[in-house]
Every structure is written in structure tokens, then in C-alpha cells.
């Protein structure tokens, strides 16, 4: 039911983990639904995402989308990263089964949450 790309990202997820020096962290999801994703980013002074890591509790699709979004944003400017939607992520994985589209496809939401967190922290300085 999953594409080869999804299975590849599920079996060999990229950028798993957390960072001590992250300057933006976003957590989205809901344990009751069975999906929680935590995305950490390190943004440099030129607004470029230098490092990104994820941790996800969820099904194969949730893990694969998390992994894929980290690949998509690494090295991107914040403004470009902001354009990535959940659909961008599922397209990059050659699609997801219909039932997974709204429950497990939340990687871009986690990214947005991390970017918001970064911006909030920056303003607070």
C-alpha cells in the first residue's frame, strides 16, 4: 500500500534525533490519533536552515513524511521552507494512501511550528 519511497524513508529515516543547540522546535499531533511529531531546526544568521532533526511517534507514513520534510528543508532559506506544504511532502514521496493524507501527513505542520518558534524566540531577543 505504501510507495517504494515511503518504505525507503521508513526503513532508512534521514535526520532522526534532537539537537541541543536547536533554535526552533515544533511539536504537533495528538497521541489519541496515534501521531506525534517533533521537529528541531538550527537556523543561521542568514535565515538558512543549517540543521534539522525529527522525532516521530506514528505509523509508517508519519515517519516517512517526517524524514522527507527534513530532506526538503535542509539548506533552504526560511522563506522557501515556509512554502512547503503537506502536499509537497506527500508528492515528494510519490503519494500516500488516501486514509493517511490528513492524519499522518503533518510533517509540514511541524516545520511551520518550528519556524514560528524560531521567529518568536528571535523577536524576544
Amino acid at each position: 500500500m505504501y510507495s517504494e519511497k515511503v518504505m525507503d524513508h521508513f526503513t532508512n529515516p534521514r535526520n532522526v534525533g534532537e539537537m541541543d543547540d536547536a533554535n526552533g522546535v515544533g511539536t504537533v499531533g495528538n497521541p489519541a490519533c496515534g501521531d506525534i511529531m517533533k521537529l528541531s531546526i538550527k537556523v543561521d544568521d542568514n535565515d538558512v536552515i543549517k540543521e534539522v532533526k525529527f522525532k516521530t511517534f506514528g505509523c509508517g507514513a508519519a515517519i516517512a513524511t517526517s524524514s522527507m520534510v527534513t530532506e526538503l528543508v535542509k539548506g533552504k532559506k526560511l522563506s522557501e521552507a515556509g512554502d512547503i506544504s503537506n502536499n509537497t511532502v506527500s508528492d515528494a514521496l510519490d503519494g500516500l494512501p488516501a486514509v493517511k493524507m490528513h492524519c499522518s501527513n503533518l510533517a509540514a505542520d511541524a516545520l511551520q511550528a518550528a519556524i514560528d518558534d524560531y521567529k518568536k524566540k528571535k523577536e524576544a531577543k
Binding site: M7, F10, G58, C59, G60, A61, A62, S104
Partner: peptide
């Protein structure tokens, strides 16, 4: 999450079921 477990088990040829929503 159960589906992740089932997928990983399936790769080893082990079939089971889960109460996971997924």
C-alpha cells in the same frame, strides 16, 4: 505505534495485527 511495528515485522516475514488506528 503499532503500524510501524507491523511494517517492520512484515519485512522479516512475520504477520500479526494491531489495535492501531492506522
Amino acid at each position: 505505534e503499532g503500524e510501524s511495528l507491523l511494517l517492520s515485522m512484515d519485512m522479516l516475514g512475520i504477520a500479526a495485527a494491531s489495535g492501531s488506528a492506522c
